[in-house]
Amino acid sequence: MDFSKWLKGLVRLDLHGAKFNLGLFSGIHIAVDNSRKIIINDNRPIISWKQLSSKEQKELLSFFPSQLKQGIPLLETEFHQSADKFSNFSRQRGYQDLTAYFIDKLPGEDILILKASLYLKWVLSQNMRTDRLKQDIVERYGSRGQNISNLCSAGYFETVIKPLFEEMKQSPGFTVEKFLQVYEEIVTHYPFAVFIHRHMDAKTVEILIKKKIGDMEKYGISTLNIHGIGRYNVKRIKEAIRKLKGRVAFTEKIELREHIIVATVKRDHSSI
């Protein structure tokens, strides 16, 4: 017996011969427990595992390997929902254009980090939880993953890295390798930006910002953007700037919107 016939039998038993055609449905869900053996909800059959007899449970499981061979994935519900969400997101023009632009320019692993980071940025913009996504990137790719994610969330792939490539490719003797050297420096040190996180205390924030301002000359950077999200980080950044004002020569412009801060610092060339 094939899966379709078996399901039809289950429907006949429990739905009194209601019309059933597997081709009408996009998927089948196996739930732990429902009130009935099988229900059709939102045009989707839902089989209740606990309502099946032991024989029916064995029969159901026996169909899965052949279904998989036919190319039908077998997915845990939450993963399936996340896949749908990512699939819809990945059709967005901005995502497609940016990833297509970089696909033949950046290392393959960085493309994957960029894709993950663009999704993370979108999830954050939808006010959904991002802790697990951030953790996935950092666990797999370490500090490189975190750095690319930071650069992506602040829009630097569009505003700095892409224009950099366009500018560099006009130069005589340009090669992708030359671009990658500069790109590597950006990903490793991002000299034009600093990202403040929750786990940094006031002193660490102050030291980091001071170091970044000091490095501006070394990298020939005229402005430094200090990024932070959340009340805690906003407070830390403002405090650090206030403390450094007396000791380091710079001017700053602070943009604050819904607990997202971007403080742009211009270094005075007189002294540090």
Partner: peptide, 19 residues
């Protein structure tokens, strides 16, 4: 809807992982 009498996916609750 599915095509050619073929499903697009089978999903399952996490508690059924072992089965």
């Amino acid at each position: 809807s599915g095509k050619n009498d073929k499903l697009l996916s089978i999903t399952f609750d996490k508690l059924l992982t072992t089965d």
